[in-house]
Amino acid sequence: MSLRLIKAVLAVWEREMYEYLINLHINALRLAIEPLLFIFIFGMGLGRRVVIGDVDYLYFLAPGILFMVVVNNSYMTISMRLMIARDWDKTLITALSAPVKPFEIILGYVLAGITQALAACTIFLVLMIYFLGIPFGSVSRVLLLIIATAAFFSSLGVMIAVVLDNPHHLMVITSIVVLPMSFFCGIFIPVSDLPGWSQPIIEAIPLTVAVESARAFALGSGNPGIWQSLAYIMAFTIAVFIAALYLFKRKLII
């Protein structure tokens, strides 16, 4: 890796982070309130009546919501930012007329997604662990899962935003693909409660892998094989990243 490459990636990353920080009040509102609402309504309200296996629902739910925070702070922000950068501010074209490669631009965006997800998750974890006393097991392993999952969803955000031509389409895709993911991928209900035929498909989705691994740590139930989970998610990430890169070049360099 050349010095120029590293500088270019960091330049894209820094710019994204700068914009994130000057809009921090808005970002914080949107990104912190939603998961906390879920925790309060489902975990502490409804959840008081629910026990899954022999586990309190709140304890079951919290690791799942953690990954909802990841999705919100990687896929949601990055896909929107990328679409703005391509169609409104034309930041992408401006960047491409500088000595920067598509690969470096996408990597910068993915790094920004990971950073933002890590920041939001850290706040969420602190609230959960210190204020609600919810166990999360090994925090360092959970952080690794967060990084891998954020990398996957940031790349996915880039890919989908590059393919679509219209912000409305982006909203539709988000609500029919990404939102259901959070309902089915074991965040609110265990995958084992879903119809039998759907289970292998759901289990194959990286988000499910991350949620279930994190939950196993949190509840101390079995050894989820952290490195296998990470490798699995990273394999998907690399595949989506390559697809995003290919589509990016095809769409922007005409």
Binding site: R15, I22, D89
Partner: peptide, 21 residues
Amino acid sequence: AYFDHHLNIEDNLFYHGLLYG
């Protein structure tokens, strides 16, 4: 040519220059 509407012109110039290392 476009500039980023969220940033002032000084920041715009700065982040563009940063791409040149």
